[in-house]
Simulated assay, not measured.
Amino acid sequence: MLQTGKKEAEIIKKAIAHWKDSGLIDEKTSDKLANDVQPVGFDWQKLAFYAFLFAIGSIIVSVFLLLADEWILKFIEDLIDAPHWVKSLLFAVLAFALYAFGYRRKVKKPDQIYSNEALFILGVISTAVSATFLGLQFDTGSGHFSLLILLLTAVYAVVAYSLRSQVIWLFFLMAFGAWFGTETGYVTNWEGLFWGMNYPLRYTVFSFLIVGGSFLIGHTKISLFQPITYGFGLFQLFTSLWFLSIFGNHTDFNIWSQVSQVELWGWAVLMAAVSVGAIIYGLKNDDFLSRDFGIVFLLINLLSRYVEYGWDTLHKAVFFMILAVAFWLLGKKAETIWNLGKKKK
């Protein structure tokens, strides 16, 4: 018996009915398949996801509450007095234990995805703490802590690949982005442009590379991580474009505050062009992720421009009428592409 959500069950049954009407399957097979689909009223998967998120939060809170106990305070004092390398080693051992225990559970109980990944998240946190103390141990005062983040990035990549963990790979991507930002900041002494780019523009270029890289890894041994890399890259790309449309390629707040919004219009057009491109690509290739990101950030772009240019001067009804026309034209284009796709079939 296939148990699924109500909406998914309706889609599956419609597909079965279509196959029957098209003569692909007979009525007996159709009835058998339809009866095998059982809609589930309550989404236990989502409950499990939020329950484990709450559990991780509760663990963190419990650690702080334990600090109120005298023997814990004494232990913490002794630990604080220990060399940084000892603390780093302790957290490294804890991280290894959490990874090992999580992997063991993943092998024995593969269906319990969220509980297994929760252990991996705790391992990720312990790894970060271990790396922090390691950095303090070997700190030379240069301020080049991006090297430590690069080490952490490499560790997350190796562990994610070894354990086949999507959540650890997500932390790898975030650490990789953090390394890029801190390294370029260190090179520019935290105040200038890097190759003529401020942070939003840097991350726009960086995100394009992440999205492009996601297509490449789809044909490698790490193809397992292609979807999450693609999704993360799109999110970072459109977020960077949005900041770029607001601040332009400026690094000084005082200079930016005196710049006319008209001078930033080109960045807003760039964001709109990328959004429309993502929508068209998503519709042509049945890529809901690209399509949805494009639609959402096209709307965010329009609303942002409304706040910047027309909130005090343009009548609200006029703005939403413009918005309606824009999406009507977008819908017509989508319908055209969809009909072309049907003809090709």
Score class of each variant (00 low, 15 high):
T4V: 15
G5W: 01
G5F: 04
G5T: 14
E8N: 09
I11N: 13
I16P: 06
L24E: 03
I25P: 09
D26E: 01
S30V: 01
V40A: 07
D43G: 10
Y50L: 07
F52V: 04
F52I: 04
L53P: 00
F54V: 09
I59L: 10
V61T: 12
S62L: 04
S62T: 07
L66K: 11
L67T: 14
A68D: 13
W71S: 13
I76Q: 09
S88K: 12
L89A: 15
F96N: 11
F101T: 14
G102H: 12
G102W: 03
R104D: 08
K106T: 14
D111M: 00
Y114R: 09
Y114C: 02
N116R: 12
L119K: 12
F133Y: 15
F133G: 03
D139K: 08
H144P: 01
S146E: 10
L150N: 07
L150F: 15
L152W: 04
V155E: 10
Y156V: 13
V167G: 07
A178P: 00
V187R: 11
F194T: 07
F194I: 03
M197G: 06
N198S: 09
N198W: 02
Y203S: 12
T204P: 00
S214C: 12
K221W: 10
Y230C: 11
F232V: 14
G233F: 02
G233E: 01
T239S: 09
W242P: 00
G248Y: 04
W256R: 13
Q258N: 06
W265C: 01
A268D: 07
A272V: 01
V274F: 04
V274T: 13
G282E: 05
F288G: 05
F288P: 05
G294S: 05
L299F: 15
I300M: 08
Y306R: 11
E308I: 09
M321N: 03
V325F: 12
V325P: 10
K333D: 02
K345V: 00
